[in-house]
C-alpha cells in the first residue's frame, strides 16, 4: 500500500480507537490536518486546517436519535437527495440501484458530520484554528457553552444537536470530538489524544 493509504488507514484506526476507548458517549471524532497554502494572495505560507479524516459513531440512545432528526420535511428531502447523489457518486454512478439507506432519515449529527467534510479553517480561525494556533484544549460542554462561545462552528454544532464539542491540538493538526450528551472535561481524553496523535509518545 502507498504511504498516503497507510496514513489514511492509521488515522481512521486512531480516531476509532480514541472514541471506542474513551468509554463515553462521543458521537464523532474528526482530525483536522494542517496543510500549507503556498498560493495565498499575500504570498505568505499560510497554514490551513482541512479535513484529514473522521469517524462517525452515532448516538446510541434511540430516543435521542429520533429527537435529533426532527428537521422539517423539506430539509429531510434535501438531505436524502444529497445522500442518494453521494452514494451514486461513490459507487461509480450505478444509478437506479435501490438502496434502503437512501430513504432513511438523515439525523442532525450525521448531517453536521457530512457537511464538516467540506470545511477548512485558517490558522487561528474557528474552533479548530484557535485550538491549533494557541496549542490548547477547547472544551465546550452544555448547549449554553456552545452558543456562548461566539464561534460559528460551535453554534452550528448546537443547532444540530451537539451538547459537547472539544478541540485538542496535536502535532500536525487538531482532534475534534462532538457529542449529543453533556460530557465533562477529563484529562484522560487529552492523554489519549496525546498518545495516539503525537509522535513523541
Amino acid at each position: 500500500p502507498s504511504l498516503s493509504q497507510f496514513n489514511e488507514d492509521t488515522l481512521q484506526q486512531r480516531l476509532q480507537a480514541l472514541i471506542e476507548s474513551a468509554g463515553e458517549g462521543w458521537t464523532y471524532a474528526i482530525f483536522w490536518q494542517i496543510s500549507h497554502d503556498f498560493e495565498s494572495p499575500t504570498g505568505d505560507n499560510t497554514v490551513v486546517l482541512g479535513w484529514g479524516d473522521g469517524y462517525y459513531k452515532g448516538e446510541e440512545d434511540k430516543e435521542k436519535k429520533k429527537k435529533s432528526s426532527n428537521s422539517n420535511p423539506a430539509e429531510q428531502e434535501h438531505r436524502k437527495r444529497v445522500i442518494r447523489e453521494l452514494n451514486s457518486l461513490i459507487s461509480g454512478g450505478g444509478g437506479g440501484v435501490s438502496d434502503e439507506s437512501n430513504d432513511e432519515e438523515v439525523t442532525d449529527t450525521e448531517w453536521f458530520f457530512l457537511v464538516s467534510m467540506t470545511q477548512s479553517f485558517a490558522n487561528g480561525v474557528g474552533l479548530p484554528g484557535e485550538s491549533f494556533l494557541n496549542s490548547r484544549v477547547i472544551w465546550l460542554s452544555g448547549s449554553g457553552a456552545l452558543t456562548g462561545s461566539g464561534c460559528e462552528r460551535a453554534s452550528q454544532g448546537q443547532i444540530y444537536g451537539l451538547q459537547t464539542m472539544v478541540c485538542i491540538a496535536a502535532e500536525n493538526g487538531v482532534v475534534e470530538l462532538g457529542s449529543s450528551e453533556v460530557i465533562s472535561q477529563s484529562s484522560d481524553l487529552m492523554d489519549k489524544v496525546n498518545s495516539l496523535f503525537n509522535s513523541n509518545n
Partner: peptide, 26 residues
Amino acid sequence: IPSVPQARKASLARFLEKRKERLMSA
C-alpha cells in the same frame, strides 16, 4: 493539494458504508 479531495472521498465512502451497516443492524 491533491491528497485532500482523496482523503475526503475515502472518508465519505467509509461514512456511507458504515451508515448502511448501522441502518441494517437497527
